[in-house]
Amino acid sequence: MRACPEHFNLVSSGSLSSVLGMLASDRGKWLPIAGGTEIMVLFSAGKLQQRNLINLWNLAELREIRVNEDTVSIGGGCTFSQIRSHPVIAAEFPLLALAAGWIGGVANQNRATIAGNLANASPAADSPPALLACEAEIELISARGTRRLPYTQCHLGYKRTVIAPDELIYAIQLPRKFSGWCTYARKVGTRNAQAISKVCIAAQAKIDFGRIQTIRIGMGSIAPIPLQLSQIEQLLAGCPIDRIPLVESRKLLDTAITPIDDIRSTKTYRRQVAGNLLEECLRTLAGTGA
């Protein structure tokens, strides 16, 4: 342990509104902490810059999964264990249920929250590709009120988001429109469990009458932010499943992504495997939709 706990403040204020009040009154002073699976790692390594933390763990208002008529609303403080084991998510958003199981081991899934995964804004995060493929919206809350925006607009750059210092992720909204869509997801990590992704992908397609009507594809670890592959989605919309332009899709992918070399892999590998995954994805979707 390389940090001195005496130098850090962690305030638990009991309710969401008082947390928001504190975030508003001292903008930028507070670092929200929920399950701690990211922040505590930095803290222990002596690398946590912020000294004032505000506790979100177990704020009841953030831990609910609500099933509405048209949407499922996942509270920002929901853990990935909660998400994985929710019957409606498992049935209607299998991509997200699967991605929740990609995260760490059971102990991490019991603590890591979906808001934390998004706010931390790592390009290698496990849930974003699924959220992109599920047309998620994020609902932000602050003392000023709430706002809702497509998740595609959340990330501004490497570890940068639109979330203001006084805002929290209140909920993730998922439209209940994917019944009958074909899905594909795969994480390529350093090993089968407890792994950080080298490349990951989640996609789903509505396939009717032998054609892809609509397709959504999200990818991680291949750019500074999680990427929705919109150009490829447009190319494929309307394509007959027996004539999927794989080569063209891979070419578009090649221009869309900007992978890097790091401690876990190489940009060459990421580029190649991203292409392979896309190809496997399209073949699989076409196969299941046939």
């Binding site: 027996d242 004539r243 794989l246 080569v247 046939a290």
Partner: peptide, 14 residues
């Protein structure tokens, strides 16, 4: 393996 036998295929029907 890349650029050898297992190079990805062309447009193949599913």
């Amino acid at each position: 393996l890349v650029r050898s036998r297992f190079q990805v295929g062309e447009e193949v029907s599913a």
